[in-house]
Simulated assay, not measured.
Amino acid sequence: MRALLIIFTLCCGISLFAQENAQDDQRFSAVVINAQTEKPMGSVHVVNLNQVVGTITNDNGEFSIAAAVNDTLYFSFLGFKSQKIRVTNDMFKFKDTKIALTELAYALEEVIVRPYQLTGYLEIDVKNFPINNAYQYSISGLSVSYEGGNKNPSAVTKVLGAILNPADLLRNLFGKQPNQMKKLRKMKEDDQIRDLLASKFDRETLTELLQIEKVDIEDILNNCNYSKSFITTANDLQILDAISSCYEEFKVLNRKK
């Protein structure tokens, strides 16, 4: 009786393991269309942010990508607003899922530009002109001061971070998030993702994949001695390779400690 129970338990475990693997290996298929014209869109980049794999749509707007329930898919196309969707069970059950992208011309809200109107009266113009509320912090022994943004408890930490070496900064950003660095390596290995990043300059895809802010990317590269010109003009693929190189240096420095 005990032997039968053990066999039954093993069979259940194998069955559950097989089901989990089947779910991980399943592919999600859908069609990407233009929200305004409802026409299919070819060459749209699709990235699974969880599994860090990418693909592009064909001329009929169709794509197929490895995905599991609750994975987040990121859609990107030049001139259109990028979009993220969460994969659900219903999307696997029904095979006619359509993802609509909106042209930026429709997505952008109206912006009213109001230039400063100077009256010539100093007392009035001073009140109308915006004031820079960023606080400056100076540290004894250093010839320059650092701007820490609005006054808050983290401002001093930002100032201290500005004079730390790259390894310290990277440890703060990535040392507690090793999974993000695994994503970084997978991003470098996926040709579709590399092609997407090579065509972009907005850091949007990088921030989505790595789950960090644009300012963090700039801080990493600044502290790894990349020039301001490179940081502002490089495409996202070059930025990815630079961050990766910087992280490799961080690992070497970390081993020596």
Rank of each mutant, 00 (worst) to 15 (best):
D202A: 05
N222Q: 08
S138I: 04
P166C: 09
S29R: 11
L104M: 08
K39A: 08
T37W: 00
H45A: 11
L197G: 05
S43L: 14
T207V: 08
Q136K: 15
N225I: 01
P40C: 00
R171E: 13
F94S: 01
Y121C: 10
K158Y: 08
D96T: 03
L49R: 07
I7E: 14
D236R: 00
E208H: 08
N34K: 05
E208Q: 10
T233N: 02
V215I: 14
A107E: 13
F28K: 00
R114E: 09
G148H: 01
I163Q: 03
P166T: 10
L101T: 07
F129N: 07
N70E: 08
V126D: 15
D216C: 12
I193N: 02
F174S: 05
V32Q: 07
D125Q: 04
I239T: 04
P166H: 12
N225G: 07
R27C: 01
E38F: 10
Q192R: 09
F77Y: 12
K81E: 14
Q83S: 14
V215G: 13
S145A: 12
D96M: 01
N89S: 08
S245I: 08
G13Y: 06
V156C: 11
S29H: 11
N222E: 06
T37R: 02
E20F: 01
L142W: 11
Q136I: 13
D96H: 03
G161C: 05
K228L: 14
E249K: 06
V252M: 05
K95T: 04
Q36F: 10
Y74D: 03
N50P: 00
K228I: 14
